[in-house]
């Protein structure tokens, strides 16, 4: 079932999240971890690109990394699902491959 992509960079620092989204297929999942979680916040300069480019893929964010950075779950963009590490493991297992965008 498609690819699980992980992104660990803030989209305000570099193009990694946008590059990742530009290489996804319908049915893929994108999980934002570490500093990547800043990409999941609503009302930012990149949230429009995220909702447009991310419309065919499932968007996830690692809850532990959100909490560490003091980001309230209520500030997440619509459709982004928060998972814990076990959820990360499940996503890795249920997709055919994992591509880590470093």
């Amino acid at each position: 079932m498609g690819t699980l992509h992980t992104v660990n960079k803030s989209p305000f620092q570099n193009q990694t999240l946008l590059s990742c989204l530009g290489h996804t297929h319908e049915g893929d999942a994108v999980l934002m971890i570490e500093d990547g979680v800043y990409g999941a916040v609503t009302g930012t300069a990149i949230s429009e690109a995220l909702s447009k480019m991310g419309s065919d893929v499932s968007l996830y964010v690692l809850g532990a990394d959100l909490a560490a950075r003091g980001i309230d779950a209520g500030r997440m963009a619509e459709g982004v699902i928060s998972v814990d590490y076990e959820g990360f493991v499940d996503l890795s297992a249920t997709h055919d491959r994992v591509q880590n965008w470093l």
Partner: peptide, 19 residues
């Protein structure tokens, strides 16, 4: 870098789930 911490948490969770 957080990478080794993330890896550690992932490995722990994977093992806990029986992988």
């Amino acid at each position: 870098h957080q990478a080794s911490d993330s890896a550690y948490n992932f490995v722990k969770a994977a093992l806990a789930k029986g992988h």
